[in-house]
Design a protein around this nucleic acid. Structure first.
Lengths: 196, 196
DNA sequence: GTCTATAGTCCGATAGAC
DNA sequence: GTCTATCGGACTATAGAC
């Protein structure tokens, strides 16, 4: 669809959200205070509260950008894998979306930091994520995998994501790579033609 | 091993931990305050602080009982499935342990409420869980499953557990049953002789 | 052992200067 | 638009009565 990074967010707002995610990932959701976010972002509390008039607004912003990030990463991933045609096959879109959830890179800690902070503050903030999860599951199911296999792969991605966010992952770097590869190749099944 | 419910905890302490878990599961980790726990348990704040001298101690107690609960449920589950001999085969122990993590019953919400609260407060509190996770993974791997399959099943259990704790689970009751059944039968593989 | 009362700290939000 | 200063409230933890 649109190539816009994040629909309506200014670069300044991005810095604030980055700081918030960093805090949650590093020190836990309990340390996500307005003072700490402002200090981490290099602004004052008043400056922070201008963009997010309340802490609830900040949490909502974190959840919103989390979803947008996932979409953007999935799109670019599917595009890279299926360069040329306009519409990549469903299998490629799903694989890219799962891979986006598991990306180890810079924004990796951001993946669930927003969810964790929101859940700690007010579980109802996760409402936007619920529909999204169901949609992802449906997409996996629509492949020629049977429902149980699709659900297990979907859940495994969730489990790895959360485990790593909580620093609970029991895998070595090598083991993790093998597991991620296995999940993706199962999604791709007979058609393991991705360039990896 | 021992049939004792929880090693050294008095019944009064159990009530306090129950109240704390209920609060986290229902209203989020941010609402886990000493006042709220005391009120939920029907005692006064001083009474609570007699048993848990600090909030940190309360969180540690929650994590500790969470692990003990899992052990107890797994043992009884494996026992029921392999009545007779003293030592159930590894396959049964693993299946029982996974099933314990996914139990929908009374203590279900307790499964991860402690972890969520601990992670929100201080991520280092989850240290005792990390070794435990690796141990569970090793047990799954030691079956005649290959490593990737074992890891995926292990992660799927985690993912389902966390999804349900955060009220993010996209499954209907029927779908959930099918998925859990599929996970367990994969662990049991060729020997699907459990009485279900 | 359990409760009340209170001390001390930290956080979220507002008001107003620049 | 960003900052400083500050209010009011909620929280953890302690001291001491019963």
């Amino acid at each position: 669809m649109a190539a816009l990074e994040s629909s309506l967010t200014a670069p300044c707002v991005e810095r604030l959200l980055d700081a918030a995610e960093r805090l949650v990932a590093d020190r836990g959701a309990a340390h996500l205070t307005l003072d700490a976010v402002a200090a981490e972002a290099g602004v004052s509390k008043g400056g922070l509260l201008y963009h997010f008039p309340s802490k609830l607004a900040l949490l909502q912003g974190m959840v919103k950008r989390h979803i947008e990030d996932l979409d953007a990463r999935a799109s670019s991933g599917a595009g890279a894998r299926w360069a040329g045609a306009d519409e990549p096959p469903a299998r490629y879109r799903v694989a890219a979306r799962l891979e986006a959830s598991l990306a180890k890179s810079s924004a990796h800690r951001a993946v669930g930091a927003a969810m964790l902070a929101a859940a700690a503050g007010d579980p109802s903030l996760l409402e936007p994520c619920r529909a999204r999860y169901r949609q992802m599951l449906d997409e996996v199911t629509e492949l020629d995998l049977d429902f149980e296999e699709a659900a297990i792969l979907h859940l495994a991605v969730d489990g790895l994501m959360i485990s790593e966010l909580l620093h609970l992952s029991p895998f070595s770097a090598d083991e993790r790579e093998r597991v991620v590869g296995a999940i993706l190749s199962r999604v791709m099944k007979g058609k393991q033609t991705h360039d990896r």
